[in-house]
Amino acid sequence: MADQNMRFLVVDDFSTMRRIVRNLLKELGFTNVDEAEDGQVALHKLKNGQFEFVVTDWNMPNMTGIELLRAIRADAQLKHLPVLMVTAEAKKENIIEAATAGASGYVVKPFTAATLDEKLKKIFVNMAK
């Protein structure tokens, strides 16, 4: 089981979505959660804080989720961070793009609490390997 104190960063331009994801994480026992409203803010926070997990939307102003993912994978300090994409983008192209860019998981909106739980657990298992 993953560390309940694991520090999460939830990245979405809609505050409602951030709150929902934060509440779901709380339900799953993760209370150490911070938020960012776009990729740029997220990258800044990631570089300055000890985060262990990123949950990000795709379509955001300033810096999109896929750009954030690429920036994380290109950064020596951050590249090992697990990144779960939670997005309404449902084209196969998007999913392939995210997977090849190094996403740890892909969840399409609208999603259920069970789906988020399942994907997180799968990522934790992979992290432990």
């Binding site: 449902a90 084209k91 196969k92 192209e93 999913i95 969840v107 399409v108 999603f111 789906t115």
Partner: peptide, 9 residues
Amino acid sequence: DIVTNQEQV
């Protein structure tokens, strides 16, 4: 060209 649920993803 799209997926309609998480299972397809």
